[in-house]
Amino acid sequence: MEVRTIKVFTTVDNINLHTQVVDMSMTYGQQFGPTYLDGADVTKIKPHNSHEGKTFYVLPNDDTLRVEAFEYYHTTDPSFLGRYMSALNHTKKWKYPQVNGLTSIKWADNNCYLATALLTLQQIELKFNPPALQDAYYRARAGEAANFCALILAYCNKTVGELGDVRETMSYLFQHANLDSCKRVLNVVCKTCGQQQTTLKGVEAVMYMGTLSYEQFKKGVQIPCTCGKQATKYLVQQESPFVMMSAPPAQYELKHGTFTCASEYTGNYQCGHYKHITSKETLYCIDGALLTKSSEYKGPITDVFYKENSYTTTIK
């Protein structure tokens, strides 16, 4: 009895394709271990004539594949690729409408935090270190965002349907971005203890939790000093293409032309909904596939993004 075979390709990165001759009487799992086709788990399936010449994702289970996976995804987590594939199996079914010149995501599976993050990423200057993220990001900007969303979920250790947080998501993504040249110098002034300067680099240099107003941050924000008295913390120097200011959701007025974009969060910790506000020729609110415009805006804002380049204080 002759062994019926077909020729397929296996890959971990969709760049390096490895030619395989597979036995049609055995499952993919018996031949390769966990195997995925377009995100779908085909591990328990036997090869079919229609699979001839198709590319299958496999887990990096030998040295060659491990090197290829690390170079593309910059992670050695053995569960990463499987999590990416199972997320992709959902995100490829989502709709990605162009809204006001940006790629958004039609609401499904509690994905409003991903839509808000995706919209924000198209408006701030950011370059990702893992080629996987950078490639998928370019495709997302062009309207094909399924891979990018699935990668975000995998890097953030999230599953489809789980509630997510924009600030946490951005923080994970910033860790995989090139923020080497970003720098922030802060000064804390206390009447009792004097003053202390701190220099922050990388992710810490672009994120701040405690106030939404970048102007206020430049002037000074009140913080408790270690001595128990009130101290003032203010920005001395900022070198970065953008800054992200966050605070627990509270009524906040966004003035046209003073910011790049913002995240609105309605609801409580267990259950809520994100919308995205962007400042173009007027203010726009993007909620999944829905767009509304207004000249002014007041609502429960939790993150505001500002364009920056270089700032030095005039406070002496």
Rank of each mutant, 00 (worst) to 15 (best):
N61M: 15
T116F: 04
N16G: 07
R4Q: 12
G101M: 02
R184Q: 07
Y113G: 03
N157R: 13
L212Q: 02
E264P: 04
D77T: 00
I223C: 08
E162Q: 12
Y252R: 03
A250P: 02
D135C: 07
A154M: 01
H90T: 10
A154S: 06
H273P: 02
Y311V: 08
Y72F: 11
G288S: 04
S263D: 10
L186V: 10
V160E: 01
A231L: 03
E204L: 05
K93D: 10
C182E: 01
S240C: 03
S279Y: 09
F174C: 08
T198R: 14
R4F: 13
P224D: 11
V3H: 14
S246D: 06
F259R: 06
I286T: 03
I105C: 01
L212S: 04
P224Y: 13
M245A: 08
V185I: 10
Q134S: 09
T10S: 10
E215L: 03
L121M: 07
W94C: 02
D38C: 10
K280P: 05
T278F: 07
V166F: 14
Q134E: 05
I124H: 05
V189D: 07
T169N: 03
T260V: 15
F70C: 12
K44N: 10
G53S: 08
M245E: 01
T75I: 10
K218G: 03
G299L: 06
I286E: 01
V12G: 07
M207E: 07
L118W: 02
P224S: 10
A247Q: 09
D23R: 09
A150Q: 02
T226Q: 13
W107K: 14
A154R: 02
E253D: 08
Y72G: 06
P97L: 10
G143D: 01
C225G: 02
V3R: 13
H18N: 14
R4D: 11
K106F: 14
K316S: 13
S310Y: 11
K233G: 13
N178K: 09
K218H: 07
P47I: 00
E204Q: 06
E308Y: 07
F148M: 09
D180S: 11
D38L: 13
W94E: 00
S86R: 11
E52I: 10
Y297P: 07
Q222K: 15
T11W: 02
Y113W: 15
F56C: 05
N110S: 02
E168L: 06
L151K: 01
T302P: 04
A115P: 03
G143P: 02
G101L: 00
E281M: 08
Q251P: 03
Q98K: 11
E264T: 13
V243F: 05
E281W: 01
T169F: 03
H18W: 01
Q237A: 09
V42Y: 14
F9C: 09
L153A: 01
R167N: 06
D287T: 01
M24W: 03
K46C: 11
T260G: 06
M209N: 15
G29P: 02
Q222L: 11
G53C: 09
P249H: 04
V160G: 02
G272R: 14
C225Y: 02
G53L: 14
M85G: 02
T226I: 05
K307L: 12
N129K: 06
C182V: 06
Q237H: 12
N309A: 13
L119R: 00
Y234W: 10
F174N: 01
K44G: 12
E253G: 06
V58A: 05
C285V: 15
H256L: 15
N61C: 13
H176W: 09
E215Y: 05
T116L: 03
D23L: 08
L153H: 02
V166E: 01
Q175A: 10
G164C: 05
K106I: 07
F242A: 07
T226A: 11
E68G: 02
K201C: 10
N14S: 10
Y274V: 04
T169C: 09
V243R: 05
A146R: 03
L179N: 00
T312I: 15
I286W: 04
L173C: 04
T103H: 04
L254Q: 08
T5Y: 01
C149K: 02
T11V: 03
D38P: 03
E162V: 14
N268E: 09
A132D: 00
S310E: 14
N110K: 08
H176L: 09
P241F: 02
C156Q: 11
G53A: 11
N178R: 12
Q216N: 05
K95R: 12
Y269A: 15
E168T: 05
R66M: 09
P34V: 13
K93V: 03
Y113P: 06
T91E: 00
Q230V: 13
D38K: 14
Y172R: 11
G288L: 01
Q216I: 06
M170E: 00
E239C: 11
S294D: 08
K183V: 12
F9R: 14
L173N: 03
E253Q: 07
T282E: 09
Y84G: 01
Y28R: 01
T314K: 15
I105P: 01
Q122R: 01
A115T: 11
D38S: 12
M170I: 09
L118D: 02
T199F: 12
V99A: 00
P131Q: 09
N100C: 13
D62Y: 00
T11F: 03
I6T: 08
T116V: 12
V67E: 12
K275F: 00
T266I: 14
D23A: 10
A150M: 01
L119M: 06
Q230H: 11
Y252S: 00
F259G: 06
Y57T: 08
A150V: 01
L17T: 04
T199Y: 09
T27F: 13
N309W: 10
N49D: 14
G202Q: 05
K44E: 09
V12A: 02
L114F: 01
N61V: 10
Y137C: 04
L291Q: 12
C271N: 00
D41P: 07
V304P: 05
L121T: 07
T192L: 10
G194A: 07
M26V: 15
N14V: 04
L173H: 02
Y137V: 04
S86Y: 08
T103A: 03
K298V: 14
T159D: 15
V206G: 04
Y297H: 11
V21P: 10
M244T: 05
A247L: 05
K158W: 02
H51F: 05
E204V: 04
C271E: 15
G210S: 07
A115Q: 05
P78K: 15
Y274L: 07
K201L: 10
L290Q: 14
K307W: 06
L37K: 12
H90P: 01
C225Q: 03
Q195T: 11
T116P: 01
V67F: 15
Q134D: 06
S263C: 13
N268C: 09
L173E: 00
Y265E: 06
D63A: 15
A136M: 08
N111I: 05
L65M: 07
A40S: 10
F70P: 06
I223S: 15
K219L: 07
H276E: 03
C271H: 15
M170V: 05
Y214N: 06
T292L: 09
S213R: 11
T11I: 08
G228Y: 04
A140Q: 00
Q196Y: 10
Q251E: 15
C271G: 14
E281D: 09
S295H: 14
Y306P: 06
N309T: 13
E253C: 09
F174A: 04
R66N: 06
T198W: 13
T258R: 10
Q123G: 02
Y311K: 12
E162K: 07
Y208L: 06
V58Y: 02
Q270Y: 10
V189M: 12
P224E: 13
T312N: 14
P241M: 08
R66L: 10
P60S: 08
Q196L: 10
T198P: 05
K44W: 11
H74W: 06
E239P: 05
V3C: 15
K92V: 06
L17D: 01
T282S: 14
L163T: 09
A132M: 06
N61P: 07
Y297K: 05
